[in-house]
Design a protein around this nucleic acid. Structure first.
Length: 213
DNA sequence: CAAGTCCGAGGATGTTGATC
DNA sequence: GATCAACATCCTCGGACTTG
């Protein structure tokens, strides 16, 4: 039996997609998760899942961060990204980060089935015409993606606040920790990303399209 | 008087070591 | 890994002083 994990923070969307897939696929085991933490938990409990349908904008997921983390922890699990965005640079980074497919949320159920079928057979899947547009995209920084995947969730939050231009004191207030702790996190981030200052950290976040959510 | 220079105070950043 | 305190370093800003 096919085993799927649908990771999306909108219960209505999950339930609609689950219903459509059950109707079309018949015998299928579908699990659901609503944020990055619960997704990682589901994958830990069931690492044999055949396909993960991952929403890019779940809480804790921060655009590419969730995908990067999941690919680092579970490199053998096929991932298809579901997103409301169809911006080419984002799609390019998603594919280079290891996703086997990119499905626009607005797609018809038949498109979902087509994509899932292709990926389960070991192929990649993109919406019609998108593959050509991806060819002109600059090569992504895979090494930095790997480094970002090493960050802890708290360090990732600090990194994103750095990108937003917050002072250490402001970051401490946002995370309800002391300024000294923020500094320690920043030092750890610099080590893991092999950078020397917050300006470089901001550039990394911009380059990888990371966000805090 | 305006512009430039020097210096100290205070704030912000980053490192290190210790604790839980 | 998360947190914190202590410390060193860097940067900014304002005041005092000098120069033209």
């Amino acid at each position: 039996m096919i085993s799927l994990l649908i990771a999306d923070d909108h219960p209505l969307f999950r339930s609609a997609l689950t219903g459509a897939l059950r109707e079309q696929l018949g015998e299928v085991e579908i699990q659901e998760s609503h944020d990055l933490e619960s997704t990682l938990g589901s994958l830990k409990a069931n690492p044999d899942v055949d396909l993960l349908l991952l929403d890019l904008n779940m809480p804790g997921s921060g655009d590419l961060y969730g995908l990067i983390r999941i690919r680092a922890d579970y490199p053998d699990i096929p991932v298809a990204v579901i997103s409301g965005s169809d911006e080419i640079p984002v799609v390019a980074k998603v594919i280079e980060a290891g996703a086997l497919g990119y499905i626009p949320k607005t797609s018809e159920p038949s498109i979902y089935l087509e994509a899932i079928g292709a990926i389960l057979e070991g192929d990649t899947w993109l919406p019609a015409g998108m593959a050509d547009k991806l060819e002109n995209q600059p090569a992504p920084n895979l090494d930095m993606q790997r480094r970002v995947a090493e960050l802890t969730p708290q360090q990732y939050k600090v990194l994103c606040y750095l990108h937003e231009g917050l002072l250490n004191k402001q970051i401490a207030y946002e995370l309800n920790i002391s300024e000294a702790t923020v500094k320690a996190h920043i030092t750890a981030i610099f080590r893991k990303l092999n950078i020397n200052n917050r300006t470089q950290a901001v550039l990394v976040v911009s380059d990888l399209n990371l966000q805090l959510n």
